[in-house]
Every structure is written in structure tokens, then in C-alpha cells.
Design a binder for these strands. Structure first.
Length: 285
RNA sequence: GGGGAAGUCGCAUAGUGGCAAUUGCAACAGACUGUAAAUCUGUCCUCUUCGGAGUUCGGUGGUUCGAGUCCACCCUUCCCCA
């Protein structure tokens, strides 16, 4: 019997959660999340985690399983997701994967090259160098140690340059030598369903959802996280704006407006990512 | 009624004689293999064969080779005194 992974993608607030739950019910199976923020237990309201009822209706995996203090990343996600999916396939013929983190979804579909993680000390060291020496110096190091990647990188994006150097300094090998970019072949079928909404409707849904988050106690959730605001996971729409509010930089209303705007921009980025995903069956809701 | 300040490309902001005009935001398009709800790029008056061309800075008129910038009047807004 062949196994099928149903992947539900779409912009934030497009209705993935309820669609996936409905689908999982019909298929009598469970859901694996592909959301880089819902995976953290400290983040709930602001990342639109499925409600208690929804989580009860269908069993969800990889939601609220890690702490924001962990050093989580796509590679870890891919390993975990794949092992959960494999296990689920031993009970079910179908499994549903649902999420808006394009890179995470892609890691499940195509796999991701095996290369080293970044130790925190090295990262902060490199960030230091970026601030003191400047990007140009680091670019020269990259050019010297990995000419190939140097010609490919976005030289204006420090994140990309730093990541390459993180790998190079740890291993002594060129970053590009790890980047085979070979697509793995999964031993199950994949069916991708993309959810679409008209621009206006998506905007309306985002605005409404942000208002609901405030009603649900977003302010309190974020307030409790203020001490940890510098951790990467909290560099997230819905949190950073409120950190600014607690800093006295902006009013609550301004924060709320900014969250709406930034969520819209995030949705746009998700769509440009998903648009280039192959074999998506798009559904206009 | 008297006095003062100001009106710039969606919003905000720079510009005081050579400017299609600064910067930020928004918007739009895009990139992205370990921070990814992150990070980064391009476009953003109109048309364009991408070299340019044509219209702009509340309105009208004027000074000047040349005006967003100077002058006059008008319109509008804000502040202070009445």
C-alpha cells in the first residue's frame, strides 16, 4: 500500500489550520506542523497556534515542543519531522503536514544537505566581527576560503555571508562543498495543496486575527517574554512590535497597526516563496 | 479683527536660484540550504527602442539664462492675541 503525505501550504491567516484539520479527519490521520514559531512552547497567541479544541480534534505534532531557549533550526526540524512522519506511516496510509514556513516545508519535500550547525559562541564571535570590522572584511575572508560560494552569495546579506563563514571556520572546508543541493527522494507520495485567498480577503482576515490576538491576551503573553526578547525566536511579528511598546517607543495602537502591516508583508513573502514550489494544487478559498 | 508659521511625488520628511527633487514608512516585484514570522535586493510622477522624452513642488501672475527655492496677489491649514 502506498503512503501519501498531504502538505497544506499557504500564507498566514489563509485558513491552513482548519483546512488541515478537516483533511486529517477525512483521512483519519494526524497532523505534523511545519511552523518555525508554533514549535516553541512559550509562543502561543502571537503565532496563532491552533486552539485547545483544535489540538484535541486531531493529534498535532511539533507544536509547542521546544523552548525558545533552544537553538532550533531547519535541519533539526527536518530530522524530527521525518522521523515522526515515518512513525505515523506505520499506523496510517496518509499523513497531513501543515505549515507556513516555506523553508521547513521545503526541507520535508526535498531534504536538506548535511552540514554542521553553528555553535553559539562562533555565531556571536562572527556577529562581533561584523559590527567591528564590517561586512567587507568578512566578504574577503569568504572570497579567500570559498571562491565558488563568494560568487553566488548575496553579498549584501550579512546573514548569508556569516553562515558560510560559520561552516568554513568550523570545518576548514568550503561552504560550497557541503551544498550539493541534491533533492532527496522520499519513500512516500507527496501531494501539495496550496491555499489562496484574494488579497483583500487575506488583509481582512489578518486584521481580524490581530484584533482577536489582543482580545485573547497577546499583551500579557508578550509581557512575560520581555526578559528574553533578544532570543532569535522572539524576533517575530507580533512580538517585536510589542517589545517596542513595552519599551515606551510606540503606543499599543501603533503596535497593533504595525503588527497588521508586518503580517501582511510576511504573507506576501510566503506567497512569493510558495509560488515557485512545484506541483502545487492551488485552491482559491 | 490683529500677529505669527506653513502648504513638496499615498503618508511623513529634506531641499533657500541649476532638481525629476533627500530620507523614512507604506505599496509593488523578487531572492533565499541551519536566525526563515528571520535576513536581503529592485522599482516606486508619466511614457520609453532604457539612451532619453514629457509633465511636477497649493493657485495665478511676475523677476531671472534658469524658480520648489525670490516678489505680488489669491486659496487653504495651524498657532498666539482678541
Amino acid at each position: 500500500m502506498s503512503k501519501t503525505l498531504y502538505i497544506v501550504i499557504g500564507a498566514t491567516a489563509s485558513g491552513k489550520t482548519s483546512f488541515a484539520i478537516e483533511l486529517a479527519r477525512q483521512l483519519k490521520t494526524e497532523i505534523v506542523s511545519a511552523d518555525s514559531r508554533q514549535i516553541f512552547k512559550e509562543m502561543n497567541i502571537g503565532v496563532a497556534r491552533p486552539s485547545e479544541d483544535e489540538l484535541k480534534a486531531v493529534k498535532h505534532h511539533l507544536i509547542a515542543t521546544w523552548s525558545i531557549h533552544e537553538n532550533y533550526n531547519v535541519a533539526r526540524y527536518e530530522k524530527e519531522a521525518m522521523s515522526i512522519i515515518a512513525e505515523l506511516f506505520s499506523y496510517y496510509d496518509d499523513v497531513v503536514l501543515c505549515g507556513g514556513s516555506g523553508m521547513y516545508v521545503n526541507a520535508v519535500i526535498n531534504g536538506i544537505d548535511d552540514m554542521p550547525d553553528t555553535p553559539v559562541e562562533l555565531r556571536s564571535q562572527l556577529n562581533n566581527e561584523l559590527n567591528t570590522l564590517g561586512l567587507e572584511v568578512l566578504l574577503q575572508e569568504l572570497k579567500a576560503k570559498d571562491e565558488k560560494y563568494y560568487t553566488e552569495v548575496d553579498k549584501q546579506n550579512p546573514r548569508r555571508v556569516l553562515r558560510a563563514l560559520e561552516v568554513i571556520r568550523q570545518t576548514g572546508k568550503p561552504f560550497s562543498s557541503f551544498r550539493t543541493e541534491e533533492k532527496v527522494k522520499r519513500n512516500f507520495d507527496i501531494k501539495i495543496i496550496g491555499l489562496q485567498r484574494s488579497r483583500q480577503e487575506l488583509i481582512n482576515r489578518i486584521n481580524k486575527r490581530v484584533d482577536e490576538m489582543f482580545d485573547a491576551g497577546l499583551l500579557e503573553e508578550v509581557r512575560s517574554l520581555v526578559p528574553f526578547k533578544s532570543v532569535p525566536a522572539l524576533s517575530t511579528v507580533g512580538y517585536r512590535e510589542l517589545f517596542d511598546y513595552f519599551d515606551g517607543k510606540i503606543s499599543v495602537n501603533q503596535a497593533s497597526e504595525l503588527i497588521k502591516i508586518h503580517t501582511r508583508q510576511y504573507a506576501k513573502r510566503q506567497m512569493t516563496w510558495f509560488r515557485k514550489t512545484d506541483n502545487v494544487e492551488w485552491k482559491m478559498l
